[in-house]
């Protein structure tokens, strides 16, 4: 067991390193360097003098070959030092740390709302006997994955801030300011959780043990909640892990719409200003969160589902192989109804 944990940890670190490298390569494609952009051409008379530009270039390593720069930055990154933001001149790590709490609050609440609504929709849709209700509920997730998040945000602002003055249209002021953005952010995870959960619930309800339980006289609700849900919740857990990376990324758009402070808005500003150290820091942080959450889920998965035994030979649970999620369809996925549980006939 411990060998397995250790192996997964090493894998996670390797993937994180590789993610850093990929990001570095992508951003190094940039023609020119941010120092020149920042200083403009002011160097010729009265802008920043050439010596200062040279110093800045040196500071950022732009006078070095790519490989030297890469290892220089990598060593620093290992110590948690992602360099200095070109546009604000503050250490990237402190820029990100400052911006993290509001984003965590936003994504945390967004995920919670998503789970609550997604779960409720799935349970209700699979529980109800009303065909129209089931169809209506099951079509919600399809809608949820098809709307642009920023547009949902703007519609909510329109309605709840402009027409009915219920919530503020922007800002970080307390819980009231958090509601609209969190609801906006919750649309996607809610829809996906509802899809997965509804599908697994239906599968579980069709299993012999559920049928048996019902035959033995267990109430429908009891079978639903006690038996089916317990089995159905695992795929939903997996998707929740996958969604964390997604949520952080979507915060870029949502925080922009609501003019909220946070990591997302910093990212958008950094992209606009071509502030490479910040963009790199954020992307690597996104990968870090994603990898960590999925590692944790991987590790607790066997505890939740006794059917998955951790091989003594150091092999992991069957469902995945590397530190990352076996996402896009290790194969079978595709042939299942694509994004949405088919509203109607497929269910």
């Amino acid at each position: 067991m411990w060998r397995y944990v250790l192996r997964r940890l090493v894998q996670a670190v390797v993937v994180l390193w590789a993610a850093y490298t990929v990001t570095f390569l992508v951003l190094d494609l940039l023609p020119g360097d941010p120092v020149s952009t920042l200083a403009g051409a002011g160097a010729d008379s009265q802008g920043i003098d050439p010596a200062q530009i040279a110093r800045l270039k040196h500071q950022y390593g732009f006078d070095q070959p790519v490989l030297v720069r890469y290892f220089h930055y990598l060593t620093k990154a290992l110590r948690g030092d992602f360099g200095v933001s070109v546009s604000t001149n503050r250490p990237v790590s402190s820029v990100m740390l400052d911006a993290l709490p509001p984003t965590l609050a936003l994504t945390g609440l967004g995920l919670a709302i998503g789970i609550a609504f997604g779960g409720a929709i799935a349970l209700l849709a699979t529980y109800t006997n009303q065909r129209w209700l089931r169809q209506a509920l099951l079509s919600l997730p399809s809608l949820g994955v098809s709307v642009p998040g920023f547009w949902v945000g703007l519609m909510l602002v329109q309605l709840f801030s402009f027409r009915i003055r219920l919530f503020p249209a922007f800002g970080n002021d307390g819980l009231r300011g958090l509601i609209l953005p969190a609801v906006t952010l919750a649309v996607l995870p809610g829809a996906m959780i509802a899809q997965i959960l509804a599908k697994s619930l239906l599968t579980a309800l069709a299993e012999p043990y559920a049928q048996t339980a019902q035959a033995k006289g267990a109430g429908r609700a009891r079978v639903h909640l006690r038996h089916a849900l317990r089995n159905a919740v695992l795929p939903a857990l997996t998707i929740t892990g996958v969604l964390t990376g997604q949520l952080m990324a979507n915060a870029v758009v949502i925080e922009t719409v609501f003019s909220r402070n946070g990591l997302g808005r910093i990212t958008a500003a950094a992209v606009t200003a071509q502030d490479i150290p910040v963009v790199q820091g954020v992307v690597v942080f996104g990968a870090f969160v994603f990898i960590t959450v999925n590692l944790v889920i991987d590790l607790v998965y066997p505890l939740l589902d006794p059917r998955i035994a951790v091989g003594s030979g150091g092999r992991g649970p069957s469902r995945r192989r590397s530190g990352t999620v076996d996402t896009p369809a290790g194969g079978g996925a595709l042939t299942t109804p694509a994004v949405e549980p088919a509203a109607g006939s497929a269910l």
Partner: peptide, 18 residues
């Protein structure tokens, strides 16, 4: 001083007293 890029949001925030 809050940075609110959209004129419409600034307007509505002033109207609502935010």
């Amino acid at each position: 001083f809050k940075v609110v890029p959209e004129a419409g949001v600034r307007t509505s925030s002033l109207q609502s007293g935010q």
